[in-house]
Design a protein around this nucleic acid. Structure first.
Lengths: 134, 134
DNA sequence: TTAATTCGCAGTAATTTACTAGGAATACCT
DNA sequence: AGGTATTCCTAGTAAATTACTGCGAATTAA
């Protein structure tokens, strides 16, 4: 149970955008430099966040990215699932039991479902605004 | 944020052992068959669980594995971290900030730590006994 | 002694991660 | 109009991890 660098970089980037919410767009380059990350890789992360509707872009010189809504309205769940993919633990934990080879005796699927819900609830309640420094 | 098949199989196996707690040892083969999993692979999973002290083995014919303590005293956290490795999200989330390239502005590490704690607490409180069928 | 089992180690194919690279499209500024 | 800074798009790739397979030795109950 690890998270990938995409979430790591991506969340830091979202925090930076949140710090500058309401100001001019921030370029990928600025944020990539701040995090010792290559432009290309950071671009891909921003593309995911944009596709999910969390940020919007301005192309061309002096362009960059801004949040689409205030940091109070962005949940950590939105960010993490965008970057990490849906939080699923087993085939059965998401409701589809058809792939479960041990349907009759399997009591562990109930656990995966509870864990799933616990994490999702936590992530939905936590908002980006709670993690802005200064 | 996915779990691996090791946890999937391993937890099911632990549930089976829990169902038969106090009875004769259960062989790897029996459990592997139940789950459409190869003996070899299941053996490796059992080896991890044994190394962690969660189960004990009896070698030779009519041997197998049994839980080392009652299912009420085995937390899901013990099982999951044994099979999945320690639940760590970033270098900084575990307290060591030395690898964090953006120490000064980084407010996201606080979040990883909170998530970490949330999951760990959940896993520590949940006991294997809650997920025994019949 | 035989059969059933754990134990231990080696190897490997498939998948995922974590990038790198290059160029096209767009928009601001002079 | 031209130069520069940016997003956008796609392809490729090395390294790591996952999910196994296979073999053979050690052990033990019957």
């Amino acid at each position: 149970m690890k998270i990938t660098t995409k979430s790591h970089y991506g969340l830091m980037a979202m925090c930076e955008l949140a710090r500058r919410y309401g100001q001019k767009p921030v370029s990928v380059r600025q944020i990539a430099e701040l995090q010792n990350c290559s432009n290309s890789y950071m671009e891909q992360i921003f593309a995911l966040l944009k596709k999910a509707g969390l940020i919007q872009s301005n192309r061309g010189a002096y362009g960059g990215y801004t949040l689409t809504k205030p940091p109070e309205e962005i949940s950590m769940g939105e960010i993490i699932t965008t970057l990490e993919g849906p939080i699923g633990f087993t085939d059965c934990s998401s409701g589809d039991e058809s792939n479960c080879s041990n349907q009759h005796n399997c009591s562990s699927q109930a656990f995966w479902q509870e864990l799933h819900e616990n994490i999702n609830n936590f992530l939905e309640e936590k908002k980006l605004s709670e993690f802005i420094k200064d």
